[in-house]
Design a binder for these strands. Structure first.
Length: 216
DNA sequence: AACTCGGGGCA
DNA sequence: TGCCCAGAGTT
């Protein structure tokens, strides 16, 4: 297991590799952010950005999503995949916002997770990005990278990975850490073809060294 | 813990 | 073509 000093090195190196690692969603208001993140499940953020660009010209508030038949909403988000579930969730979620939260996006993770289509990761991202409450949303990239590097154990659950990261990373860096690890995982420490041969973190990486030895 | 939804992107 | 994706809900 990596100690705090080693994790410090890891994060600094990731920042050098991906200096621009930041979420484009930062510039949205809380409602648009929530919708965008719900839509982003199992598809790339590039695609989400493309779709939401037009989407938010038409739908600006929860009422707007309820004003159309579900087939129309489905069609508007069709290219994003999983669109039937997502359209249904967005209408349910919009109704809940109006009924329970006066049309506003709630701030607490518990309330957010009670909304249709919003799970732990989405709630983390929204509280972190929209309300500046520190959080580390553990997705597949963060989990894989943490396990390969030895920041946590292989068999750790998502929740354990999250707790370990929160314990070992200073709170004010949780949000950046999340984005750095995602970029690192997506473009470098890939699930299928990790770039261990050219990885500046190889010396620190348990799995990477194993992998290199195996290839040799 | 495993399965499903699903079109787009990439090899 | 086939495989995977910045997930959540259900069984």
């Amino acid at each position: 297991m990596l100690n705090k000093t080693q994790i410090r090195q890891v994060l600094d190196t990731m920042e050098e590799m991906f200096p621009d690692a930041e979420c484009e969603l930062v510039h949205r208001n809380p409602f648009e952010l929530l919708i965008a993140v719900v839509l982003s499940a199992q598809c790339t953020d590039a695609l989400v950005n493309k779709v939401t660009k037009d989407l938010f010209l038409k739908y600006k508030a929860p009422e707007d999503f309820l004003a159309v038949p579900i087939e129309e909403l489905q069609n508007d988000i069709r290219s994003i995949g999983l669109y039937r579930n997502k359209a249904k969730n967005i209408q349910k979620l919009s109704a809940a916002l109006i009924e329970k939260y006066d049309g506003e996006v709630p701030h607490s993770k518990i309330e957010l997770e009670s909304l249709a289509g919003v799970g732990r990761k989405t709630a983390n991202v929204v509280t972190s990005v929209a309300f500046s409450e520190p959080a580390i949303a553990v997705d597949t990239h963060v989990e894989r990278v943490s396990k390969r590097l030895g920041i946590c154990r292989w068999k750790d659950s998502v929740l354990e990975v999250e707790n370990t990261l929160m314990r070992k990373v200073p709170k004010e860096e949780w949000s950046e850490t999340h984005h750095r690890m995602i970029f690192f995982g997506r473009y470098h420490c890939k699930a299928k073809n990790p770039q261990c041969g050219i990885c500046p973190l190889l010396d620190l990486c348990r799995e990477g060294k194993k992998r290199i030895k195996k290839l040799a």
